[in-house]
Design a binder for these strands. Structure first.
Length: 269
DNA sequence: CGGGGCTCCTGTGCGC
DNA sequence: TGCGCACAGGAGCCCC
C-alpha cells in the first residue's frame, strides 16, 4: 500500500533513473487507468515530451513534462512505477523511453489512476489536502490545534487526507504504537504530552520508512522493481496475535472505520 | 458538516 | 479436492 514514504522512495528513484529521458511512445494496455483526458489524447500529448521533474504531495506523484503538462499518478493500493530494461508483463501502461528502457505502470486491482493535467495544484483532491507532515511549517503546535476541534477517533483521523497528507492505514497504526496511544481515543481528549508524542512519532515513523525505502506489504516495490525493507521493522501492522516487541502481549486487531487496525492493548493507552 | 456505509477491483486464503 | 465467498484497502460518493 503505497503511502507517503513509498511514493517518496519512488520519486527519488525516478529522479535518479529517468529524469531528462524522452517518452518515445506510450502503450496503453488498459485504458481504464487513465482518468483524464481520453486515452488517445493522453498518448498524443505525452509522446515526444521528456521528464523534467518529479514532485510529490501526500501520496500523489506529479511528473512535470517538457510540454508543460503534468502526469499525475496515484498508486492507491497496488500501483507500481517500475523502470527496467524489460516491459513488465502485468503493465497497464508502458512508457517507452529514450535509451531503450521502459517505465511500466502496473496495477493489479485497477484502483490506481493516471491523469494528464495542465495544473496539478488545482486538482480538487490536491487542493483539499491537509499539511505535509514532514514539512517545517507543520509544527507540533499546529498539529495540536487541529486535534483540539476533532471529536473523532484518532486513527481514522490520521488517515484523513484533508487533515494530514500522506498517512495511510499502515503508518497510522505504526505512529500510534510508537506514541503509545490507543487508536480508538478521541482526538480532542489527547493531553499536551500525548499530542507531542504523536507528532514526534509520525515524523520518526515516516522518516525511518523513507530511510528503509518503504514497506513491501501488498504489491509495493520501488522505482526499480525492488522491495523496501521497512516492513521488516513493523511493530503492529499485520501482526495480529503475535507478541508485542515491547511487552510481549498479544497484538490485537479491531475494525475502525471499516479498516483493519492492529495495536498493543498494554502499551497503547 | 460529519460520520457511516457502500463502491470500484482482483488475488488470496479460508471454511465447508 | 474444489468451490464459493469473505476479505484486503484509498478515496469518492450518497444518505441521514
Amino acid at each position: 500500500m503505497p503511502e507517503l514514504p513509498e511514493v517518496e522512495t519512488i520519486r527519488r528513484d525516478l529522479i535518479r533513473d529517468v529524469k531528462g529521458k524522452k517518452v518515445k511512445d506510450v502503450e496503453i494496455l488498459n485504458p481504464r487507468v487513465i482518468k483524464e483526458p481520453s486515452p488517445s489524447e493522453f498518448k498524443r500529448r505525452i509522446k515526444g515530451s521528456s521528464f523534467r521533474d518529479f514532485l510529490r504531495r501526500a501520496k500523489v506523484l506529479a511528473i512535470k513534462l517538457s510540454s508543460g503538462d503534468y502526469l499525475v499518478v496515484h498508486l492507491r493500493m497496488t500501483g507500481q512505477l517500475v523502470y527496467s530494461a524489460k516491459k513488465e508483463e502485468k503493465a497497464r501502461v508502458i512508457f517507452d523511453l529514450s535509451g531503450g528502457k521502459y517505465l511500466s505502470f502496473n496495477d493489479q486491482r485497477l484502483f490506481a489512476e493516471l491523469r494528464l493535467v495542465r495544473d496539478w495544484q488545482k486538482m480538487k483532491f490536491v487542493k483539499g489536502l491537509g499539511p505535509e507532515p514532514l514539512e517545517k511549517s507543520f509544527t507540533a503546535g499546529k498539529f495540536g490545534d487541529i486535534l483540539k476541534n476533532k471529536k473523532t477517533k484518532i486513527k481514522p483521523l490520521l488517515m484523513d487526507q484533508t487533515f494530514i497528507a500522506g498517512i495511510g492505514n499502515l503508518y497510522a497504526q505504526e505512529a500510534l504504537f510508537q506514541a503509545g496511544i490507543s487508536p480508538g481515543r478521541a482526538a480532542n481528549k489527547l493531553n499536551d504530552a500525548e499530542v507531542k508524542k504523536l507528532y514526534t512519532a509520525i515524523q520518526k515513523v515516516l522518516h525511518d520508512a523513507i530511510r528503509y525505502h518503504g514497506s513491501s506489504v501488498d504489491e509495493y516495490v520501488n522505482g526499480r522493481g525492488e522491495k523496501g525493507e521497512y516492513h521488516l521493522r513493523l511493530k503492529v501492522y499485520g501482526r495480529e496475535g503475535k507478541p508485542c516487541s515491547r511487552c510481549k502481549s498479544k497484538i490485537k486487531k479491531v475494525s475502525m472505520g471499516g479498516r483493519g487496525t492492529c495495536f498493543c492493548p498494554k502499551c497503547q493507552k
